[in-house]
């Protein structure tokens, strides 16, 4: 098992971003949950509760409960997204599996020919899916792997992509450190012909929980191929056990309209089954605001 952990860690570290890449959107990385919206890039380091499509699979190892959640996000310009996710711990401490499905709709837009003659309404949809597995290796070490796909449907075209994420995490008391490599995989087929290189991202993050986990702070540094490296940080505070306030801070210079500050609120009932309702918000300036709502149950 030690060799397995070593192999995953080496594989993660050895991945070097390939050639310069365009700024394409990979729909599996779009935030569909309030937590992802609030924490943005730091969500992978922040959360042990994967709900959306972008998660740290190594953190799954710490999830010892079953959960089911659904989330919807209102984007700008009539664009909407949503996701459902579930976690399932395996018996005899054999790790935890996770799966999520996501959907994006561009809404409708008018089509035109090159001289402006109307061609009727057109739209685009993206469907994404991910499945992951996390395993507690030894001591505080955990490792995980996730597989993802995305299918973007445009008028008379379809792009289909596959990728893998792998992560390693070490936990010691209230401290956790994670290394995450996202979007490893073959080139992204574009309309079955041209193929775009996946922009691989390497993230290094840490998290500290204080005061019986009522205050959690996290910081993450992500280097994505073709983009400027971005630091990010998150803070989750639970002034009372049922309520958690989330604040995320991002330094994404390529996104001039995006507010560096993301906000979120989670209300959780505790008992035999935990019910959660979450809200996330982030402003994108002149582009508009983005907000998400999620409902979840853990048991």
């Amino acid at each position: 098992m030690r060799s397995l952990a070593l192999a995953i860690s080496i594989a993660a570290i050895a991945v070097v971003p390939a050639a310069a890449q365009n700024s394409g959107v990979l729909y599996w990385n779009m935030p569909t949950t309030p937590a992802q919206l609030a924490f943005a890039a730091s969500s992978a380091a922040m959360s042990d509760e994967p709900q959306g499509l972008a998660a740290n699979p190594a953190a799954l190892a710490a999830v010892s409960w079953r959960s089911l959640s659904t989330a919807g996000v209102q984007w700008w310009e009539g664009i909407y997204g949503g996701s459902v996710g579930a976690t399932l711990p395996l018996a005899k401490r054999r790790g935890t599996v996770w799966a999520a499905l996501g959907y994006w709709s561009s809404g409708s837009m008018a089509g035109y020919d090159d001289r402006g003659a109307p061609l009727g309404n057109i739209s685009a949809q993206a469907v994404s899916g991910a499945a992951g597995y996390g395993y507690q290796l030894f001591g505080g070490f955990a490792a995980g792997l996730a597989l993802k796909f995305s299918a973007l449907t445009l008028p008379q075209r379809r792009d289909l992509g596959f990728a893998a994420d792998c992560g390693a995490q070490y936990r010691w008391r209230s401290l956790a450190a994670a290394l995450l490599v996202q979007d490893l995989g073959p080139k992204y087929p574009v309309n079955g012909a041209d193929r775009a290189t996946l922009p691989t991202a390497v993230s290094l993050g840490g998290r500290l929980s204080l005061w019986r986990e009522r205050i959690t702070v996290a910081a993450q540094y992500t280097a994505r191929d073709g983009e400027r490296p971005q630091p990010s940080a998150g803070l989750a505070v639970s002034p009372v056990p049922l309520i958690t306030v989330r604040v995320g801070l991002d330094g994404q210079r390529d996104r001039p309209q995006m507010s560096p500050l993301g906000l979120g609120l989670a209300v959780r009932t505790t008992g035999k089954q935990d019910y959660t309702i979450e809200y996330g918000y982030r402003s994108h300036g002149d582009l508009g605001r983005v907000q998400a709502l999620a409902l979840g149950i853990s048991f």
Binding site: E77, L154, D159, G288
Partner: peptide, 28 residues
Amino acid sequence: PNGVYVILVEQQSPTQTKLTKGKTMVAR
């Protein structure tokens, strides 16, 4: 890459500034 993109147009005149938004799609 293929996908949906948002257009943001800022027009300035001596008396006003106007923002116009819209979306478009790249499909090759």
